[in-house]
Design a binder for these strands. Structure first.
Lengths: 328, 328
DNA sequence: TTGAAAGCGCTAACAA
DNA sequence: TTGTTAGCGCTTTCAA
């Protein structure tokens, strides 16, 4: 078995409480005994048993990052950025546990974590949010604006971002702008579509119904959606894609059809994944600060866990247009 | 506070021990009381406190997936496939904790997990392996062949796989085959380079020293490495890239130089990430069964944790050539 | 078949 | 400043 405070107490000739105090930085120990204990702890490579600690303190020493699904619908780069961001926010002794919702809520044991970062992607996720809230879980929702009151969330203003992208296309004299959108119920899809339509409306343009195609947020979906757009009698001269993956699929379809980006068709993506710099032509896109969002989410969660005052329960980050070569 | 077995015991009019037994499927309870208790547990939404359980059973109810680094040197798709694979292997009540080695080993508390899946990528990782072994941790190493005895590992025969890739190029009548390799100390780089050289040797060809370039496993690195190859007086007519990302970078450089794949230069990648199907031209590559490897690793780890006999401590999976359009 | 007692490693509360 | 006691929620052991 591992070293415990009692082992240290024995060797130091003090009670296990003195050891506990010394180890936890209490002032009620003389410097001398503290040093002796700290040294001993180091020598013996003492590691606290967090089960025991957690049992008495009613803490779990871990936070959960929950995704709707780990295996599909989510781009690898998005997932990784999220994990990375949260991981950076972790404070000492805290573990990062990964979960998804695929097993159903009945089996979901919220009580195993001190708090949850929920990377929310669709409206149906509200069920989980209510579930977590009902159990009094410390919760930070990331990536999606939440209608429920008093929910701490970090989002990106995706409507404005999409508007910005389409405005840029308009500014570069494209007029027949189509949209390859994400899956229907996903909030990002809804917002990005709204931004697209806002921009067109403001420019007194309208978009034909078949100018909006679902690309399922995947490369393959973007490919097929673009093929449908190219099959139209009145083809678009530019396409706003609701993520980079679909833009890459679209690019492939355009190339396959013997057309050129950006001269025949302009293309804009969304997210600014690394790959955007290395397509031919490189992809003009919207930079979404995913990692920053996740990191901030983690920091907020620790504030909640430590019962600190949250100055700002709802935070909205700003995305930026990144101009490359897929727009003329 | 949450519901405990004592709460259930009180309502059921039995001792907490009977509840414990009933909940854990002991036969020493009458069917009648068992049913009463099980029903009560469900109604009260009882969730066991795994800290308490873990404390007495000396279990942690979580396994750790450890990467060398979470933030760099690793392709997002690789990381995600690993997580996904391990996640699928998880048995009831087990959490998946993600970690990296960036903090240094002194702070690494192995005792917080019942076992570790170590996704090893470089020889210097051996330090962690020895560290874990010295502490008697249950350990499964994934992705890299380990020289140490008695270490359970799941690997892919990358030497043969690389050989297969280069043999295919030879078979398609390329003769001046270069290699864009990964970072020097990474095992995969070493193996893939060996396979490349084996194939050339068997064909009685030699490769000039400057025909092997380091592309750092990144898109950007592949791009630069390809530019170097294109600047040679005697250019290659084909390039074997040690991963798909570098192949994508290389493709970009070839396009920028006004050359065509596969007519001017043939290109082969490694891993078979989704993107390979959607480059123009689509990328011929080696399919590496990453998710399967990780899942198998998880399953092996649970066998170790449950003290089961391992029939096969070292498992080597086989990679496959996936033929697409980047080779003539 | 059930229950009582003890203890896993730790900390809070109290006593000295 | 230090030590003693009790108890967090659970299981093991032993007794009934």
């Amino acid at each position: 078995m591992a070293i415990t405070i009692k082992d240290i107490a024995l060797k130091a000739g003090v009670s296990h409480m003195t050891v506990s105090r010394a180890l936890n930085g209490s002032k009620l120990v003389t410097d001398e005994t503290r040093e002796k204990i700290l040294l001993l702890a180091k020598q013996l490579k003492y590691k606290p048993n967090l089960h025991a600690k957690g049992l008495v303190l009613n803490k779990k020493f871990s936070i959960a990052v929950v995704f709707s699904t780990l295996s599909s619908k989510t781009a690898p780069s998005f997932l990784l950025s999220c994990l990375n961001g949260v991981y950076q926010s972790l404070t000492k002794d805290y573990n990062l546990v990964i979960k998804d919702l695929s097993q159903g809520l009945e089996h979901f044991n919220l009580s195993r974590a001190d708090g949850v970062i929920f990377v929310s992607q669709q409206e149906s996720d509200d069920e989980f949010i209510r579930f977590a809230l009902a159990q009094g879980a410390k919760l930070v929702v990331v990536n999606r604006k939440i209608a429920l009151p008093n929910v701490v969330s970090i989002t990106v203003d995706e409507i404005s971002a999409a508007e910005m992208a389409v405005n840029y296309l308009l500014q570069r004299d494209y007029r027949k702008i189509a949209c390859i959108n994400g899956p229907e119920l996903i909030q990002s899809s809804i917002d990005r579509l709204a931004g697209y339509q806002n921009a067109l409306t403001q420019a007194n343009l309208t978009s034909a119904a078949d100018f909006v195609q679902d690309g399922g947020f995947s490369i393959a979906g973007g490919f097929i959606a673009m093929q449908r757009l190219l099959a139209l009698e009145d083809k678009p001269d530019a396409v706003f894609c609701a993520n980079d993956e679909m833009a890459i699929g679209a690019l492939k379809a355009i190339n396959d059809a013997g057309l050129k980006v950006p001269s025949d068709i302009g293309l804009v993506g969304f997210n600014d994944s690394e790959i955007c710099q290395y397509t031919t032509p490189s992809l003009t896109t919207i930079h979404k600060p995913i990692e920053q969002m996740a990191k901030l989410g983690g920091e907020r969660l620790f504030q909640l866990i430590n019962n600190m005052q949250l100055t700002n329960p709802v935070t909205e980050l700003v995305a930026e247009l990144v101009i490359r070569d897929s727009v003329r």
